[in-house]
Computed example of a mutant assay.
Amino acid sequence: MILETISLALISLVVLFILTRLMGYRQITQLSMYDYIIGITIGSIASEMVVLDDFNNMLRPLTGMIIYALFTIILSLLSRSSLAIRKFIEGNPITLYENNKIDSTALAKARIDVNEFLMQLRIQGYFDLTQLDTVILETNGNISVFPKSQYRPAIVNDLPVKPQREKPSLSLVIDGHILKDQLAFIEKDEKWLMSQLKVQGYQSYDQLLLVLCDQDNNITSYAKRN
């Protein structure tokens, strides 16, 4: 019995992994309400597989998971090829605030009350409605805020300077392990890296959680906490 439960759990995990990869990363990063419900349903079916009293009954929930996943994949392909289908499945963004007016009808349509609306704005750092030009509820449930021009954060293009291009820092050591491909990319070797770390008081890579190297080959290290 225990062996069957372990086997069913492993099978359900493998099937879930394969189906998730087939359905795409959108299931994780851009969940719509439909994606959310489908994800919960497939996960629920997978959990039922684990507690089956007979190994031979595995086919029914397995078939259900595959059908849900295939249906999601087909809808995704159709929505890419047709804007009308995409709007039908995902809906349209809803403008909640515009021209210094809160659209109460739009709030009711989105099933959001005023308190929740104001809370979402505060989470994004906006406490004064008069500073905002437009607020939109996106189809994935996120709220996009477009402030008025005089209240938008300054960017480099607003300043009389020409910034130099910066490259992201590279990880050379993670959790005590050297990333040799990254080290080779900056045309350095382990001897150079260790010499840099010794200057900072480290004698072993095992002491380090993370080591970063910027575009000027400056090393920033983060030690493990005991």
Rank of each mutant, 00 (worst) to 15 (best):
V161N: 09
P160Q: 07
L208C: 00
I112E: 05
E187L: 13
S144G: 10
L209V: 06
R111C: 02
V173W: 01
V199A: 05
V135A: 12
P147Q: 01
T105V: 13
Q120C: 04
D113G: 02
E187P: 04
T139D: 02
V145W: 00
L170M: 11
W192H: 13
Y151N: 13
V161F: 11
T134N: 12
I112Q: 02
K109P: 02
K188Y: 05
A184T: 10
A106F: 05
L121N: 09
R165T: 12
A184F: 03
R165C: 05
D103S: 13
Y151Q: 04
D214F: 00
V161T: 15
D128E: 08
I178V: 13
P163V: 08
D214I: 03
R152K: 12
E138T: 08
L159I: 14
T139L: 02
D206V: 04
V161K: 12
L172K: 06
S195A: 12
A106V: 11
W192S: 14
K101G: 11
L172A: 08
V199Y: 00
I123V: 04
Q120S: 10
K188A: 13
S104L: 12
R111S: 08
L208P: 00
Q182H: 15
W192T: 14
Y205W: 05
L159C: 10
L210P: 02
M194Y: 03
V173N: 01
V211D: 02
K191E: 14
L208E: 00
D158R: 03
I112F: 00
R122K: 15
V211N: 01
A154M: 09
S169T: 04
V211I: 01
I123M: 01
D175R: 05
V211K: 01
Y202R: 08
S169H: 01
P168F: 00
K188M: 09
K180H: 13
Q200M: 09
K101V: 15
T139V: 08
E187D: 15
T134F: 06
G141N: 03
Q196A: 08
I112C: 07
E187V: 12
L208N: 02
Q131R: 09
W192A: 14
L172D: 05
R152Y: 00
H177S: 14
Y151K: 08
A110N: 08
K191Q: 10
S204Q: 07
E116T: 10
R165V: 11
H177E: 15
P147S: 01
V145M: 05
R165S: 10
G201Y: 00
Q182V: 07
K188N: 11
L193E: 10
V135N: 09
K167S: 12
F127Y: 12
D158A: 03
T130D: 13
T105I: 14
L183M: 04
Q164R: 13
Q131L: 06
I174T: 15
I186L: 05
K109H: 05
Q124M: 05
K180S: 14
D113T: 04
S171C: 10
W192G: 15
K188C: 06
K167R: 08
V145K: 03
I178C: 02
Y205H: 09
I186A: 07
L209Q: 14
A184K: 09
G125S: 03
M119R: 15
L118V: 09
K148G: 01
D181F: 00
I186E: 03
L118N: 14
N157R: 06
V156P: 01
W192P: 14
L118E: 13
Y205D: 07
D206E: 11
F185P: 00
F117I: 12
L183Q: 02
K109T: 05
L183P: 07
L193A: 09
K162W: 09
L170G: 11
